[in-house]
Amino acid sequence: MSLRRRVLLWFHDHPWLEAWALLAPGLTWLVIFFVAPLLLMFGYSFMPRDAYGGVESGFTLEHYARFFDPLYITIVGRSVVYAVVCTVLCLLLGYPVAYAIARAQRWRNALLFLVTLPFWTSFLVRIFSMIFLLRESGLINSILVGSGLIEEAISMLYTSPAVLVGLIYGFLPFMVLPVYASLEKLDRSLLEAAEVLGARPAARFFRITLPLSKPGVVAGSMLVFIPALGSFLTSDLLGGAKEILIGNLVQNQFTTARNWPFGSAASFVMMTLVLVAVSLYLRVRDAGEQMSR
């Protein structure tokens, strides 16, 4: 019996091991490059900081305690609010787009291509291009002033709306694509069945289309909310110093401030926030499912 055949037979007799054999390479990668650093950071977050940016041995909760400082409460609160507002606006803007693409016959692939087009350039470049748009001598202000609509340029850059605009711009495709995927699968005959049963357009949308696209809405919301909560580039470039978010905090601690233990603690605070928010979201969703009769 050839070796190949023997290996195949052995896997056939041990299907459980076959699954592990398939998982092993990816799993190893994740353990080395994701789980290990995470545990390391978790350990750092409880250790005192030394004078040169490293850690000393010992145990302390001071890094977590710092988050009760109003300064950091504000940053955490602002981060959550921005992430939530960004998710909601992405949903409101992205759902109709996804719906239109799913309904489009001829232009569907072209439209999908356009949605993914921004990914062809670096996020950094795209955020910089927003600066050209928003700054006082930028395109929007030039047009508004030039057309005589306003007399003086509006300061748009380095404000909260600028940060939100940047966040929404960056994450909108992550909402559109999963919502599109679930709408595209929607069986048209269900809508026809509802229509014959007397459902007008609004009823068809809220009773059939929306509930059946919920998996896409949930996936899209997660894909927007989680990175939005941790984002630092957008707020850094479009928000300036006064719009600092938790992502900027983490970044600063690891780079300029050289306070790795506090940076680690901030990362875990952020992770906890994500977990709490996601589980709350899922609970609300499931409760809604039971109530919708």
Partner: peptide
Amino acid sequence: KRPYERNLAMVFQNYALFPH
């Protein structure tokens, strides 16, 4: 007249029951 304005009912080939 739209389907919802007609006093009809229909059974579809694939039944089209609302899965949710």
